[in-house]
């Protein structure tokens, strides 16, 4: 079976500025996939390249096994895209924008989106008689959701979809996505909110400075073998190679440790500590570890 999304060595430079470098990623059909990274890491660049808004500097990208450069229009009919900034024609009503989006697709599909659009507006509590210019960011996001999902696409590409939505709407939004996913649609979303990725996605990839760091199941991403160690009564962390992310507050010190447990215990035993706790780091911490510059190198540009 062809992958829903497959990029190989996908590279995009804006002139000399880095967009993404050598990005190879696969998303299986039917997956619920999270694409994580800090601001400016290249998430939107990847997504916009997949959608044909940007042309890649190098590498290839396929959606449902078809090259995005040669089958763009055909593929766009199967995709529902929600941009991170929901911009529409200011002077038009919500209803008109949703209809415009459906009509622009109608040419390709010849089926009505109206019943589904009405259902989505109802669930998201979207007032369709308002003008776009009068809407808050959250409400514009809802318009975006309807435009992205009303035609029941095979692949939903969502760029930071929940920013601007209130918690109740976020929950409703994820419920809708999970229903679509159960019906067979592939969901690919980018986010920097780790908890929502952990809660909803099955697979995730982390991108930093334009390069893919890791792509795996959420479970495996959580099992890095690292421990969060908390000790009291020490001024210096034990001198071990794999100690990192040292934080002190008062007489308490915590650090991440990913070496052998025997060495850690031996080192701790020789120190004048008063208390110790060793625990699994939470996923957030693991992602933060990927985010921070002292993480395993996605090799640097400077010498």
């Amino acid at each position: 079976m062809a992958y829903a999304v497959q990029t190989s060595s996908l590279t995009k430079y804006y002139g000399k500025a880095r967009g993404i470098i050598d990005l190879s990623l696969v998303v299986e059909e039917g997956d619920f996939f999270g694409f994580i990274g800090p601001n400016g890491a290249g998430k939107s660049t990847t997504i916009r390249t997949l959608l044909g808004l940007l042309s890649p500097t190098g590498g290839t990208a396929k959606i449902f096994g078809k090259n995005i450069l040669t089958h763009k229009t055909e593929l766009l009919a199967d995709i529902g895209y929600m941009p991170s900034e929901a911009c529409f024609y200011q002077n038009r009503k919500v209803r008109e924008i949703i209809k415009l989006s459906a009509d622009l697709r109608g040419a390709a599909r010849g089926k009505s989106c109206e019943p589904e659009a009405a259902r989505l507006c109802e669930r998201l509590k979207l007032d369709t008689e308002k003008k776009i210019g009068e809407l808050s960011l959250g409400n514009r996001k809802k318009v975006s959701v309807v435009c992205a999902l009303q035609h029941k696409p095979r692949l939903c590409i969502l760029d930071e979809p929940t920013s601007g939505l209130d918690p109740l709407m976020q929950r409703e939004f994820y419920q809708i996505l999970e229903e679509r996913n159960r019906e067979g649609a592939t969901v690919f979303l980018s986010s920097h909110v780790l908890s929502e990725v952990q809660r909803h996605c099955r697979h995730a990839a982390v991108i930093r400075e334009g390069r893919l760091l890791v792509s795996d199941t959420i479970e495996n991403l959580g099992h890095t073998g690292a421990k969060r160690v908390t000790v009291r009564g020490l001024h210096e962390p034990p001198r071990l190679e794999t100690v990192r992310d040292v934080k002190k507050s008062g007489d308490t010190m915590t650090f991440l440790y990913s070496g052998s447990p025997k060495e850690l215990l031996a080192a701790l035993a020789s120190l004048p500590l008063t208390d110790v706790a060793i625990a699994e780091p939470d996923l957030e911490e693991i992602f933060l570890h990927y985010y921070t510059p002292d993480a395993p190198e996605p090799d640097k540009e400077e010498p």
Binding site: I79, P83, Y89
Partner: peptide
Amino acid sequence: KDGTAEFLLTHPVS
């Protein structure tokens, strides 16, 4: 300029 190009160009119209 208005950001609507992204909306327009991600529909299946060449």
